[in-house]
Design a protein around this nucleic acid. Structure first.
Lengths: 128, 128
DNA sequence: TGCGTCAGTCACCAATAGTAAGTGATGTGA
DNA sequence: TCACATCACTTACTATTGGTGACTGACGCA
């Protein structure tokens, strides 16, 4: 496993790491990885856990994650179909940073809400 | 500052924390916060640091960040205009989780690239 | 007089995401 | 026996977002 990270620069639009960052910083990816962090789950379970995700986006995001080697897809040839998704080692290593993001969001929620009210009040005041 | 984070659940689409997570997990936000992490910068400097961002998206993202109280905007009434953007305390607290994400992306880049090749090879093989 | 600077805005088009309906194989109940 | 539900998807269509490039305003400078 290469630990020479100096060759990648996400601030450069042509660097592959930029695209990777786009992907993992994606709204659904954060939630899907979180939903899978406690073990394998079926497609349907994930749609239930991640409120509001469409089947299309779930399929799409899961495919990307699978392609990137972060999620493993297992199909059981039964009817009705049973497909399980599970984080790989690389996927699990992403849990901590994403959980930190989730934590941050929860911790700062009230502060942000307050900031918004202030901002909106002053902005509207400036308009009038 | 409220530390009761139990009331927020980003997995619920109606929870404000979900929108906050969408926002901070946004492709430009990650990069902009990173670009501001070493101190205040002007609009133009940020466009240069964050390769490929359009003025429109920079303005838009910065406005959102300002509204959320993560970035402070200072206008110097000179010609040509001089506007500086700076992280607030809340904004700085976001640096660490986002830097962790950036680090993760750089560390796992080569593994992901390899996984993609494998995936694409097997998928194309299955098509043929 | 006219060009350059900076921090935007605006109008327009392309790409992406969301919605809702359809599919295929099969077990179950009426 | 025959329609219905289940599950994991596709597909077609629409709405929302994002990107592009031109334009603005105030002034210094040649």
């Amino acid at each position: 496993m290469s630990l020479d990270t100096s060759q990648w620069n996400p601030y450069d639009r042509n660097c592959p790491s930029r695209r990777l960052l786009d992907r993992i910083g994606d709204r659904w990816t954060v939630l899907i990885i979180g939903a899978l962090s406690d073990g394998p789950h079926r497609f349907k379970t994930i749609t239930e856990r991640v409120d509001g995700i469409s089947q299309k986006m779930l399929t799409q995001t899961l495919r990307g994650l699978e392609r990137d080697g972060l999620v493993k897809r297992t199909v059981y040839p039964v009817v009705p179909p049973r497909v399980e998704y599970e984080l790989t080692a690389a996927g699990r290593s992403l849990c901590k940073p994403l959980a930190a993001l989730e934590e941050w969001a929860k911790e700062h929620m009230s502060g942000v809400l307050a900031a918004r009210e202030t901002y909106d009040a002053t902005t509207v005041g400036a308009d009038a």
